[in-house]
Design a protein around this nucleic acid. Structure first.
Lengths: 399, 399
DNA sequence: TGTATTATTTTCAGAGCCAGAAATAAAGTC
DNA sequence: GACTTTATTTCTGGCTCTGAAAATAATACA
């Protein structure tokens, strides 16, 4: 626990301003149509400060006026505000072995543009970055602010190591993302932040999905692999993005050898890839999007197809064990099965997981869109946390 | 992930001041004898601000002047400062089934007083709180500041649940700590903060122990049970205090039934209690302090006693499995075996744990003192984070 | 001994931020 | 139309930082 810092710049008035701008925006995000008085009450800031803060945000077109929904009573009417719906301020990107998607939204969440490209063979890092830069530019179109670029977050199935980004699913190792940064800068866009898909899924499930009402949650991200992270005390578990994650938790030291080098990893029985490998003569998962495959599987399970039920039962047992471990370590209030595999939740999630601490479970809300929505939510959070910053985003891992 | 807040008070200038006071103290703590110029360089604050901050801390007797160690060169000499060694500002307490210890220190870490009481039978909550209050008052003696009481942190082998504090080792359930608060208030002392021993051990190992040089670490606390927590991005993993912890991680769903209700918990093979139960005809652990027992065990292992080696080898296998799981979830740079059981590290820690991510390991530094030193370190951190606060501490869990 | 040199700390504007109070604005009510 | 009510803005004051200048306290050298 290094606690020293060198020249990080002391805290000063500007930090106070930034923090309070963030608080104001957080209130407006969760309660669009708030008035300055409302904001003052929710944040604890005085009305004078809120007036100054809100007007600055209106001037910067981070906020815009909204028609007040509440019926007009006595007295001067409220001036309701909401997050701006005008500019392409946030961009979320998802990279997988079959599809790269970019979505641009306004701060309000209003969609601005989207673009995607599918791949018959998993893209190399260069191919992926090239495509991503093009798709991002297409999604943003001409809706970007002149002065300031959008916040861009890219979700990738992989994790950071000291040598770079790598992942088993894409078979990338030691990948350096600076070509993506350069390609974006060439197009006049700021540098992106790259994060793990499971962590970003956890963020969006926690922020506006199945775990929104809880301060502590574990989110399992079931796609081609198995990932996820946790929310602890209302904050995303950091550092988890750099770890192999839930999928490569070794549950049985004498189990089958996994591609990661360990034995008995959870992913060997819980992942859409493994389901397909066990059920189909031809591995037809890559012929369809993961959520589509998961939905088909759910149908077949619903029809009672025995082999499907067997495979899911095996996965369920693994998940129960993994759940018990994670619950005993992190003590969540809820465990969420998120990602493309969420439609299989009825077969994979027992009503409660964990032995010592039984915990309720829920199905994720976003299925195939989870990763890209996670990236969008993260990009929005980045914007809102420093809404008047005009610097380009610096490249960094996100959570 | 609840992100709303009601009336938490906006950020203001006072927060800036508090934060900067904390930064100054953090520099002085890690480098006693720093001058104002040094502090300015390390914190990024201007010299004018540092002058004001340091003088305020000197006035409050949080800092004191130190003789400068550097040889006097040209120019005006530095005014070296260090943390005050005068007052009993921090108190750490450890409660176990055989011993309650309280230690009072100055902010500098200089010991002020200590008191302890041993128990032949595990104390009830009332007995423990009664003794703790008495021992704390004795340790502080007349070295307390008149105006402001010390920060008091109590380490207990147990965890918080919604209903209160509980732990298997002490057989406490739903324990409410308000009697301890009242007993302390009656003696003119502020309310204590109660935390899990494994979390506090992690804090002190991370702050000044075996994990001091790492930003990410896992600490296993081996005592009568098995606990611990993690440091992630230089911060203690919060929320872990409320979880059953490492000891009750179910490694084998078909394993032996544990007192916690799960099967195959790590603690069933890795804990001093279990070692004693397996090795001795009479469970003689409670006849001695845990670290003493661990040292004897280490000697017997060093002498090659076969049964001891067998038990430790079994424990080692369990730890390797637990380590692999924890490493894949939290990605530490080091795994530390801390607590009274640390002397057994040579037999319990393989050179590297984890399959996918081999991670170096280390022995904890504090043995039997780990819990009380963790509590002391936490109390110091509480003081330093708000050094001019005059309110009494509010009761809260301290993870 | 006296003066120059040097490093450190303190003092002095200046600007930014929030709180609280007063002033202003915009509606409804009598 | 005057009054009441509610919302927002303006104004004053206190606090905190920064940057520059001044003061301080020691050594080095003539």
């Amino acid at each position: 626990m290094r606690t020293t810092f060198d020249r990080t710049r002391g805290t000063d008035l500007a930090d106070v301003r930034r923090e309070n701008l963030h608080r104001v925006l957080e209130v407006v995000r969760t309660e669009p149509g708030s008035s300055q008085n409302d904001i003052s009450a929710r944040t604890g800031l005085g009305v004078a400060a809120v007036s100054s803060l809100v007007n600055e945000l209106l001037d910067a077109e981070v906020l815009e006026e909204a028609e007040s929904s509440a019926p007009q009573g006595r007295g001067r009417p409220k001036r309701a505000v909401r997050l701006s719906g005008r500019w392409a301020d946030v961009v979320g990107v998802s990279i997988t072995r079959t599809l790269i998607t970019a979505r641009a939204s306004a701060l309000s969440g209003a969609p601005i543009g989207a673009a995607s490209q599918s791949f018959s063979a998993p893209p190399t890092p260069d191919e992926a970055m090239d495509a991503a830069a093009r798709l991002i530019a297409a999604a943003v179109g001409d809706a970007g602010r002149g002065s300031r670029g959008p916040r861009i977050v890219v979700a990738v199935p992989g994790a950071w190591a000291s040598t770079g980004f790598g992942g088993i699913e894409l078979d990338w190792q030691h990948v350096d993302f600076s070509p993506l940064s350069r390609a974006l800068i060439d197009r006049g866009l700021p540098e992106p932040l790259v994060g793990n898909d499971g962590s970003l899924a956890t963020f969006v499930e926690g922020r506006e999905g199945a775990a929104a009402d809880f301060s502590n949650a574990v989110v399992l991200f079931l796609g081609r692999g198995l990932g996820g992270s946790a929310v602890i005390d209302d904050a995303l578990l950091r550092g988890a993005a750099t770890a192999p994650g839930f999928g490569h938790t070794s549950l049985d030291p004498d189990g089958a050898l996994c591609a990661c080098g360990q034995r008995g990893c959870a992913e060997l029985t819980v992942s859409l890839t493994q389901f397909a490998a066990k059920l189909e003569e031809t591995d037809d998962l890559d012929g369809s999007q993961p959520a589509e495959y998961a939905r088909r599987l759910a149908e077949r399970a619903g029809d009672g197809e025995p082999r499907v039920l067997d495979v899911l039962a095996e996965a369920q047992a693994t998940l129960a064990h993994l759940g018990a471990i994670v619950v005993s370590l992190l003590n969540p209030e809820i465990v969420v099965l998120s990602g493309p595999g969420a439609p299989l939740a009825p077969w994979l999630l027992p009503e409660a997981v964990g032995g010592m601490l039984p915990v309720p479970t829920a199905r994720g809300r976003f299925d195939d869109d989870t990763a890209v929505l996670g990236a969008l939510a993260a990009a929005q959070e980045l914007f809102l946390s420093d809404p008047l910053d005009t610097r380009a985003g610096s490249p960094a891992e996100w959570s």
